[in-house]
Amino acid sequence: MASLTANNQILNNNESKDDDSFKQYISFNIDKEIYAVEITMVREIKGWIPTTSLPNSPDYMRGVINLRGVIVPVFDLRTRFRHGKTTPGKTHVVIIVSLDERTIGILVDAVSDILTIAEDEILSVPDKDVNPEYVFMEGLVSVDKKMVAILKPRLLFNMDDVPETDVNAA
């Protein structure tokens, strides 16, 4: 984890020098599917720790964890994609993502890579307009002949519905 964070740092530094049309993504997998989120959103990657479940919450909401004194909700991406519930073990990781003023955790099987992707490499999702469910997908990209779906975590867990609250209260 430490090395990865350090890596991020270097990559982030490089990014600023790079052409603006390139962006970096962290890719991770659930079963054989590969997904990615923009690296600038990722705060850290944490091994799975048991959560405290919240009553009356959606099934993909795994509960909350204590991230250095801040209560952070953890979402199960597998459940969100309707592939059942993850049974987390030692290899599972939680990607801690910053969405503006909120911090959330996404439970995935494993982190796989850091990708540098040019904007024009990102292909559109077929039938995106037809199926409103697909709004959380920014686009698709082919890396080493494998498809990677780029996600927009904000839309994935409906964080826009969350009412405005006092940030200091945390």
Binding site: N56, S57, I71, T165
Partner: peptide, 10 residues
Amino acid sequence: KSLESNYELV
């Protein structure tokens, strides 16, 4: 601690 700051009211 607030649940709302990162999630929502439960």
